[in-house]
């Protein structure tokens, strides 16, 4: 059984100020089955719809057509509370860019999922364990603005792994990073995958895509 499944998935956007034109299909009739333990990489040029696809798969946006099933449940039919709980416990998302909360320390950023986990979820000691794992223990009490891009990305990965999610979705996790940091980040994702976390990531760098056990390409909203 698939962990995540996209069936005839589509997302269209109205073109601002150009209502006479047909809507733009950012994601067009995508079918995808993600099995537990997969490491899927999706490559594609900028504007090919990669990020839009990820947000649909994470339940952050609603599709115009088709459906996304997580463990057989249609995300669109889940109430916001339930969907949020899924994002807290089972589907982690590493956004493109410097996705950290500037008001919180590095350690608090890692354990931020605790804010919305109620009494469930991991203990704070897991934040220390993960910071150790990503090599940032000494920066635990620092604030994000004092970190480098690579460090920020590693903190975001640590946060994404905090509740030991079943699925980790990463949007261009190595963009703007130097080769050393790129390798470090990819090794972290590979290690997470080896420890039973299914990974789905998009990148525009072909060599990065080689880390994936399943490699897909996206072009003009279509997945191949």
């Amino acid at each position: 059984m698939s962990l995540l499944e996209a069936i005839s998935l589509g997302k269209e956007f109205k073109r601002r100020g150009q209502r006479s034109l047909a809507p733009l299909a950012a994601v067009d009739d995508v079918n995808l089955a993600v099995k537990p333990g997969d490491f899927i990489t999706i490559t594609g040029k900028s504007g090919s719809g990669k990020t839009t696809l990820l947000t649909l798969l994470a339940g952050l946006a609603s599709p115009t057509s088709g459906r996304v099933l997580f463990r057989g449940r249609n995300l669109r039919e889940l109430p916001d509370r339930e969907l949020s709980r899924l994002r807290n416990r089972e589907i982690s998302f590493i956004p493109q860019g410097m996705g950290l909360l500037g008001n919180l320390t590095v350690r608090d950023n890692v354990r931020a999922p605790q804010l919305f986990a109620g009494k469930d979820g991991a203990d704070s000691s897991r934040a220390d364990f993960l910071l150790e794992a990503v090599g940032l223990s000494e920066l635990a009490q620092e604030y994000p603005p004092s970190l480098s891009g690579g460090e920020m990305r590693r903190v975001a990965i640590a946060r994404a792994l905090f509740n030991q999610p079943a699925l980790l979705i990463a949007d261009e996790p190595t963009s703007d990073l130097d080769p050393a940091n790129t390798r470090l980040v990819m090794e972290l994702l590979r290690k997470a995958n080896q420890q039973d976390t299914t990974v789905l990531m998009v990148t525009h760098e072909q060599e990065i895509a080689l880390y994936g056990s399943v490699r897909l390409t996206m072009e003009s909203g279509k997945l191949a």
Binding site: A58, L60, D80, R81, L83, S84, R85, R87, N88, R89, F93, P95, G99, L100, L101, A112, P113, L115, F116, A117, R159
Partner: peptide
Amino acid sequence: GLLRLVGAS
């Protein structure tokens, strides 16, 4: 948006 990512309804 980030808080939504980590599970805020």
